[in-house]
């Protein structure tokens, strides 16, 4: 059949063309850096970081992290500094902590920056995450509608606050296995409340920003990290209804994905990033981050401290 022969010629021609096109669009995968650096240069924080120039490492790495570090804008400031210092292109994949840890366990990422200590421990124990470092913390807060129908504001402690919300609702949950979601489930458990009995509890399955928007529109309560809440506050009618209890500490660690267990891991780049996150210059940037815009720091730098000493 002539037509079939024609078809074969086409397919063959296509196979020949594909590599060329692929090469063409591969060429500018690296056009990132100048643009990203430009963004960072406009923020006042960058001025603080002419650090001892390490040797350029180059290459690229995948950073699996939480939506809160991305939505708050912190990584938009830190990553360009790191890229400039080391020449390493960072691919920031912002997912929930659960997904970030899962990616690490498969060796699909090089570094994990996450905030769910109990979940992280499992991956540390299994040997997927190594060389962990405490980076920073902020805190979780319970937010809700201004009129506070569940009277959470009067609650004396965290368990009482959760117990006040349960029969009234609505409570909007992340429902995405993120660090915030894990924390929320732990809070219900600690208060002795079966999640299924919480009135009008709904799960968005989305990031913190999107979930805050849903809670805002539904006049519901939700648990959020303070950084994302402050960053989005201008669009929200939600208010802080409970804060300041010890279990609400939101602690961020950074880990190298074990290169001995996962052969694809870019160990040099990953180690450089971990070292960067706890370097004094970077910690100073974290300290300043958000002060200009929100009047308070969004994160407290913690490098070198112990988890047990936080919040004291």
């Amino acid at each position: 059949m002539t037509k079939q022969r024609f078809l074969l010629t086409w397919i063959f021609a296509l196979l020949l063309v594909v590599p060329f096109v692929a090469a063409a669009c591969g060429g500018d995968d690296d056009d990132t850096t100048p643009e990203a650096t430009g963004t960072a240069a406009s923020t006042p924080t960058t001025a603080a970081s002419p650090s001892p120039e390490p040797t350029k490492i180059g290459g690229s790495m995948i950073l699996a992290t939480t939506t809160s570090t991305q939505d708050s804008g912190l990584l938009d400031v830190l990553v360009p500094i790191f890229e400039k210092q080391t020449g390493v292109e960072v691919k920031v994949i912002a997912v929930g902590t659960g997904a970030a840890l899962e990616m690490s366990a498969k060796g699909d990422a090089d570094v994990a920056l996450t905030h769910a200590l109990t979940s992280e421990k499992k991956y540390v124990d299994s040997g997927d995450l190594v060389e962990g470092q405490l980076v920073m913390h902020n805190d979780f807060i319970v937010v809700g509608p201004k009129d506070d129908p569940a009277k959470v504001k009067g609650a004396t402690d965290l368990n009482a606050a959760m117990a006040a919300i349960a029969p009234v609702g609505p409570f909007i949950s992340r429902g995405d296995n993120s660090g915030t979601h894990t924390k929320e489930l732990a809070l219900w458990k600690a208060a002795g409340i079966d999640v299924a009995t919480v009135k009008n509890r709904e799960e968005t399955g989305q990031g913190m920003g999107a979930t805050l928007n849903v809670a805002d529109q539904k006049k519901g309560y939700t648990l959020t990290d303070r950084a994302t809440y402050l960053a989005l506050k201008k669009n929200l009618a939600l208010e802080v209804v409970f804060e300041g209890a010890a279990p609400l500490l939101n602690i961020y660690h950074v880990y190298v994905v074990n290169p001995e267990k996962h052969s694809g891991v870019k160990a040099a780049q990953a180690r450089a990033f971990v070292a960067f996150m706890v370097a004094p210059e970077t910690q100073a940037v974290i300290e300043e981050f958000g002060k200009a815009e929100f009047g308070e720091s969004l994160f407290v730098p913690d490098a070198g401290k112990k988890v047990e000493d936080l919040g004291k």
């Binding site: 995968d29 056009d31 990132t32 643009e35 691919k91 920031v92």
Partner: peptide, 11 residues
């Protein structure tokens, strides 16, 4: 695009 591209800024 989100899943396979990763939504990387500037990339």
């Amino acid at each position: 695009s989100m899943t396979v591209g990763g939504n990387l800024q500037g990339n």
